[in-house]
């Protein structure tokens, strides 16, 4: 009997510790996501990204911290026009590789890859469109295949088309139906706690510009 009780107690303690750890993770993620939302400068984003990376390194089984760490880096890419996009891409892809290993064929991770390719393309569209433009589109196609209900690949596709000159098959008229599709998916989306939910406001802004 004693043995059983002590075993039981040990089990409870472990369980408790695990829950505590899980709570700590959730709490830390929530805190860091709040920091992410309020990050305004490149320096802020670097710190948030580093914090997400640390969480990922401690947890070892969660893909979300690495996802957000990489998302911060792509935001830096959009924000800081002077940063070396190739170096940034190399760094970000290394973080993404960790998320990829923990959660293969993940729609959200494909979205990141698409954004990185777009940033690399924009360095010198003249000589890079063939390679990176195609890579960006391919990643979005994979993102849609992996999760048809994810609105973000549609938002990104819409943005790509919106930014392509009308004469080359881009422009707001062509982008609008895609943003509308993204918006419909955003309205239907019920993201799990801590899961990505960004993009709805941006889609609404883009739709407004398409009018």
């Amino acid at each position: 009997m004693k043995k059983i009780i002590s075993f039981f107690i040990a089990f409870i303690i472990l369980q408790l510790a695990a829950t505590a750890q899980g709570e700590a993770y959730t709490k830390k993620m929530q805190q860091t996501l709040l920091m992410f939302d309020s990050a305004k400068t490149v320096q802020d984003l670097q710190e948030v990204s580093a914090t997400f990376e640390r969480i990922g390194d401690v947890e070892k089984t969660q893909w979300l911290p690495y996802y957000y760490a990489a998302l911060c880096q792509t935001n830096i890419g959009w924000m800081d026009t002077k940063t070396d996009k190739d170096q940034l891409a190399e760094h970000t892809l290394a973080i993404i590789a960790k998320a990829d290993a923990l959660s293969p064929n993940n729609s959200e991770v494909f979205c990141l890859k698409s954004m990185i390719a777009t940033q690399q393309m924009l360095v010198d569209p003249q000589s890079r469109f063939m390679k990176y433009g195609a890579a960006s589109t391919e990643a979005l196609t994979k993102a849609k295949l992996a999760d048809a209900s994810n609105p973000r690949p549609y938002y990104l596709e819409g943005a790509n088309i919106f930014n392509t000159p009308v004469a080359y098959g881009g422009g707001k008229e062509r982008a609008k139906p895609i943003f509308e599709k993204a918006m419909a998916l955003f309205n239907a989306a019920k993201p799990l706690p801590l899961y990505p939910s960004w993009g709805k406001k941006q889609t609404a802004d883009m739709l407004a510009q398409c009018q």
Binding site: M130, T164, P165, Y168, G169
Partner: peptide
């Protein structure tokens, strides 16, 4: 193949 990609190269 959509060759407009070639042309976009020149212009984006």
């Amino acid at each position: 193949v959509d060759r407009s990609q070639d042309a976009i190269n020149n212009n984006l």
